[in-house]
Design a binder for these strands. Structure first.
Lengths: 130, 130
DNA sequence: ACTTCAAATGAAAATAAATTTCAATTAGTT
DNA sequence: AACTAATTGAAATTTATTTTCATTTGAAGT
């Protein structure tokens, strides 16, 4: 289970595995790319400030990814590598696994830039809006 | 010149080509992916509210693109198609022209999703930070 | 040029989002 | 069980963005 692993990562790095932190992690686990609001709804007993701080911590630890898709930040578990499909009409977000990047073209495109990660967003109209 | 074209687009859509709007457009033209602060510095006589409204308008008209790369919104002229290289250390942003997407893999990846545009961001460490 | 009027501007106020402060609490040692 | 540095959360603060509304203005028509 991911929570066990998270506890290990936290303790290993000298952070306490508090119930609030685990609650936030559980909340994020419930659904990908949630907004602050969604997360808070799923752990209403955790104070606002603690949610903010926990999201920062979990991001630092690499357990959670912060997304900037417009309309404010969203968060998701950093498990698999995937990308996002965003409907410009209704704002819904979905994922797709197949990475459409041609990695061959990445490394040499800028001199001296050390690539660590990448993101791809595809914008358009989802099936229900079309 | 791009300002002429912008005036045409605005008038053609029933909007007035005011000096404030042109000042904001000039400000954006000075440098790609600027933050709100950078834009305001380049057109200090335009009121804050007008800058916000103008950015919205120019985005709607397709003359300007709003970017969400973290650390708040940035804006750039929507001229050429390009992507961004973001340094996670110093936060600097640069562009690269060559699109690393394998477009073949895009269309069929989700049933019923009508693709309109896409963005690619590459994160890592820039030459000066490494 | 002059008039007209809907569109646009901007100062002030309101709202929203995120951060800081700090006293009280608690997880994980010893 | 006691200790202590880390953590929490309520309140206050800061920062970002939007709304309101009285005044101004671009540009269309004379």
């Amino acid at each position: 289970m991911k929570v066990e692993r998270a506890v290990g990562v936290m303790r290993g790095r000298g952070y306490k595995a508090t119930p609030q932190r685990l609650a936030v992690l559980e909340a994020i686990s419930a659904e990908q790319h949630q907004s602050m609001e969604g997360i808070r709804d799923r752990c209403p007993d955790v104070g606002l400030v603690t949610v903010y701080r926990t999201l920062d911590l979990l991001s630092e630890l690499g357990l959670v990814r912060r997304l900037d898709l417009g309309e404010g930040p969203r968060y998701e578990l950093a498990e698999d590598h995937h990308h996002h499909l965003i409907c410009e009409d209704c704002g819904s977000v979905s994922e797709f696994e197949q990475c459409p990047l041609d990695l061959e073209r990445l490394p040499q495109m800028e001199k001296g830039f050390q690539v660590k990660s990448h993101s791809v967003e595809v914008y358009g109209r989802c099936a229900s809006c079309a």
